[in-house]
Write a protein that binds this DNA or RNA. Sequence first.
DNA 1: ATTGCGGTTTTTGCCC
DNA 2: GGGCAAAAACCGCAAT
Lengths: 83, 83, 83, 83
Amino acid sequence: MPDDVGGIAAERLKSFIERIERLEEEKKGIADDIKDIYAEAKGTGFDTKIIRQIISLRKRPREERQEMEALLDLYKQALGMDV
Amino acid sequence: MPDDVGGIAAERLKSFIERIERLEEEKKGIADDIKDIYAEAKGTGFDTKIIRQIISLRKRPREERQEMEALLDLYKQALGMDV
Amino acid sequence: MPDDVGGIAAERLKSFIERIERLEEEKKGIADDIKDIYAEAKGTGFDTKIIRQIISLRKRPREERQEMEALLDLYKQALGMDV
Amino acid sequence: MPDDVGGIAAERLKSFIERIERLEEEKKGIADDIKDIYAEAKGTGFDTKIIRQIISLRKRPREERQEMEALLDLYKQALGMDV
DNA sequence: ATTGCGGTTTTTGCCC
DNA sequence: GGGCAAAAACCGCAAT
């Protein structure tokens, strides 16, 4: 562990932190852009919640999705909920 | 809500989603870059948990100042001082 | 607006705040109990994520649920996703 | 995973869910009580937003102290001081 | 009255 | 798998 605070380790630490902070700002900028698009979509009449669902679904492998649905059905059945 | 699925609304929807997905990829790319830096820092011997704490602490003062200002404004408002 | 800080208004404010804080503690206690049950269910082999979905579904009126599903299908269709 | 839907697992699942739902109702009840107090405070002339801020500020020091202690521990750890 | 916004709580994903 | 940070859903408020 670099413990010579006055030496090079402190510099490195500072550098790491600043690089991370810089990237986090960029990340935040993009997040804001995404938010803008959702707002625009909403303004056009779309339901943003559904859009989020779609995007979420497109991320997951179809197989996994079906597995979760199957499990959900199973639980519903066990509870006597309408199948 | 645009319900002519085959028409222009579908195109718009597709466009929105693709724009969002594109930006999310970018965002993920940056998140990965950040991860890499943490890995590098760890490889250099730093404790990433501490680095996270430091970054969090550095972020807080910024937010906190804004919050305090907001509270001050609220007090002014509550006291009937012109805003 | 009660602005006589030294008078009864300050007392009332204090009282409100303490009552709220007391209730928030209770609320947190219950939230912890809920967490415990999820943990127990998980320990018994259940999938907590699905349980959460079930509970969420049981909260919503069936009609509303179907509406959302219909909208989701519509969007999927518009995007050419497997229907 | 217990898959004998008709058997005891279904009973257990049902039991877990009902216990959770019961507690969530209680929690909601308390949340409503809190809401009522805010309403009462508002009716008395107080600004609820300010009250929320105050409660939030009062909560913070508690959490912050714990956080600082945790950070201190981390530093000790990072410096190789026996934990 | 309706809708957008801010803040709070809940859920999800991630790293260890 | 358990704890922690980020994202999303939810709710009350305000402004129009």
